[in-house]
Design a protein around this nucleic acid. Structure first.
Lengths: 242, 242
DNA sequence: AAGTGGTCTAGACCACTCC
DNA sequence: GAGTGGTCTAGACCACTTC
């Protein structure tokens, strides 16, 4: 079969599950039984079970045995970056305004601030080949020694740099809304008032400190974005098993 | 620290990455160096690296070493089942019609059929407490010996049973569209014509045979659904590491 | 040739479950 | 007490990269 023993064991057990020889909840043979069955050492058997576990096929219960999982078919995933994953390439980002204002009740709540604290609001228009594609409003905490307001050139990548530096501690939430463009949005996007637009609400959180880094409202016409998600294929989940 | 050696090693290496001692692309100490550093056997070190790899922190290159990953911050995931994950509980599913018709060019293409092949179209209205919530159109291949059309009671769960039996071989794709309700949709959903509605297009595929099992159009008012996705937290990804 | 990670073995001791 | 999975060790041989 396979050159690598533990992969061939994975293959055989997976086939048994796919063919229905084992059903969700069924107990697999014990590890010592599998050792005899596949003429392999315990660690090799466990490596195979580890892979199957990572791919969502089996789980183990200490003292009892290894069991077949109930398959997860409702978990979707998609990749999205509001600057790279639109249907047209963004070649211009125009700064509309930068404001420092006191947090509204809604924003104060999101950022865990009081309404007297200051929030920076940045509005930008993203275009492609001269055509407006998306309108965004970014909100983040006012940080005294960071001259993002005074220096308009610096602010643009401020958040991106911040995200990069936090790297593994970043967690994002995205909510997709659909609404009719009001006058202010339709004028910027160059579409008739009342047209349907997506409004993406993105929240970026520092998962170490649980503090909100930024809150963004992103308006984009449906023709410029595709919201497609898929349940992951097993192969893509396999990372590294020792 | 931790009772379990390999977890305490994971913790320390993760801290080093989070604190920025290691940056994306940097090479970690070799496994033999880590053995000395943590007073552990090679397999234990490798178990730790395996966990870090599964959580997206490191990757390995045979013959070279282990390296810090570039963090993935654009991969979102969400759970969605059109019958369970709406904002109101569905307590009534009303069958509007079942038709057997020849596949349109569009459907024939999706199902890899010719336009003379037959497709079953099922339309249903989902309600909660007497209020219409969603309108769906399900399309699937006509299978001769499966009396789904003749027996209206049986068809309802036909696809669900089919999905359950295929279990691990199911793969789904979901596309989110936003549009204005036309007369036929607005009348069923009880909203004004021209109101914004989500249209979810779901495709269910047998990933073993790559054949399309069903294609569904699902219309729902924004007030009845929340489309929220998040980048996964590491902890949730940790499954089983031997 | 030396160093790296990849695979595999044959043990050991532990905590847990079941009877 | 017998069986189960969870952790850990100290080796071995391999393919690969680097010099």
């Amino acid at each position: 079969m396979n050159e690598v023993l533990y992969l061939s064991i994975v293959k055989k057990i997976k086939e048994n599950i796919l063919k229905g020889h084992y059903k969700p909840g069924d107990m697999l043979d014990s590890e010592s039984a599998l050792m005899k069955e596949f003429q392999a050492s315990r660690m090799t058997i466990r490596k195979s079970l580890s892979l199957l576990s990572n791919e969502g096929y089996v789980y183990s219960v200490p003292g009892k045995g290894n069991f077949v999982c109930t398959p997860e078919t409702d978990l979707f995933q998609f990749r999205f970056n509001k600057y790279d994953d639109l249907l047209v390439p963004i070649d211009e980002v125009k700064l509309l305004f930068v404001k420092v204002k006191e947090a509204s009740a809604q924003l104060a709540d999101k950022f865990s601030l009081t309404t007297s604290d200051k929030i920076i609001e940045v509005s930008r228009l993203l275009s492609s080949a001269g055509e407006p594609v998306a309108l965004e409003f970014i909100y983040f905490k006012y940080i005294p020694n960071q001259p993002v307001v005074e220096d308009r050139l610096k602010f643009a990548n401020h958040l991106e740099r911040l995200e990069r530096s936090l790297a593994f501690a970043i967690q994002k939430t995205l909510e997709v809304r659909a609404l009719k463009a009001d006058q202010s949005v339709s004028r910027r996007l160059g579409c008739p008032e009342g047209d349907v637009v997506f409004c993406l609400e993105e929240m970026v959180v520092n998962s170490e400190s649980d503090s909100v880094i930024s809150y963004t409202l992103f308006y984009v016409q449906p023709k410029n974005i595709e919201m497609r998600a898929t349940t992951p294929k097993e192969e893509n989940n396999a990372k590294r098993i020792f």
